Amino acid sequence: MPLPTPLISAPALLALLGRGEFWPVVLDCSFDLADSQAGEKAYAHGHLPGARYAHLDRDLSGPKTARGAIDGGRHPLPAREAFAATLTAWGIGPDTPVVAYDAQGGPYAARAWWLLRWLGHSNVAVLDGGLAAWQAAGGPIDRESHRPEPAAAPYPLRAPAMPTVPAERLLAAPAAALVIDARAPERFRGDVEPLDSQAGHIPGARNRFFKNNLATDGRFLPADELRKVFAAFGVPPGNVVHQCGSGVTACHNLLAMEAAGLAGSALYPGSWSEWSSDPARPVARG
């Protein structure tokens, strides 16, 4: 059964599950960049029924190279073959409905959503409002750990459905695309830098803090409001490149644009952690 995408509300998911004919794979992507074990511990204390835990470092990222953050950033994309194998192990086939959520406003669920779309998987949605919205809607909580049955056949490799842009292309043609940076304003300006080697941003980039995509209840703003925000940048979606600190929260802006009907923008996967670690690349502040 096709999911409403790219977002699904908690009441809509509850209604689909209540029919007894809908069996999605649910991914709990909760995480904390300051404590890589916190999300898994929270999963053990309660999650959506039947949910598998998807760890940002182990499952939703590839290994760092020997050169560290210079090549690929703090959360490099996994090899497509490796992520396809992960989907197979989770019991996901090409037509399996997948719902991703987290308890942090959606950035890690958006990373999972983007990765599945990158592999060409279309039947995937993010639970709007995450765990809090599920509980507010009266959804039950499960405390059992779930070991999924692998899919019957390996997940097939298909053409990527989500474009990426490397640092070299941004350097070679800086005016060819608008870079939108999802980090907090103080990090974008270069006032502080708690994680990466230099403070600042890619010259010419604009800032859209990913948390500003959310209403006070933790759900995404209505599509028309998001459309106005991103259309105000004055650039067609195909000429937009999203980045953040390490290619994770940028997916939140990509998801917001898709929810607003503005699909087609690209991700710079290495983001600021890759860009700033090479002293030859230009840096802007302010």
Rank of each mutant, 00 (worst) to 15 (best):
P6M: 07
A10R: 10
L13E: 03
G18H: 08
E21T: 15
F22K: 03
P24I: 06
V26P: 04
L27G: 06
S30L: 04
G39R: 00
G39C: 02
L48C: 02
A54T: 13
L56Y: 11
L56H: 09
A66C: 07
P76H: 11
P76F: 09
P78R: 08
R80T: 08
F83D: 00
A85H: 08
L87S: 01
W90Y: 07
V99L: 10
P107K: 10
A110Y: 13
W113C: 04
W114Q: 06
L115R: 01
A132N: 11
W134F: 02
G139I: 10
S145D: 12
R147W: 10
P148W: 05
A151W: 11
A151H: 09
A153M: 09
P156G: 08
R158L: 13
A161I: 07
P163I: 09
A167R: 13
E168S: 15
L170E: 02
A172W: 12
A172C: 06
A177V: 14
P185E: 08
R187N: 10
F188H: 13
D191K: 12
D191Q: 14
V192N: 11
F210A: 14
L226P: 02
A231T: 15
P236G: 04
P237W: 04
H242Y: 03
S246I: 02
G247E: 02
V248I: 15
E258I: 00
L262N: 01
Y268R: 08
S271V: 03
P279N: 07
A284N: 06
G286W: 12
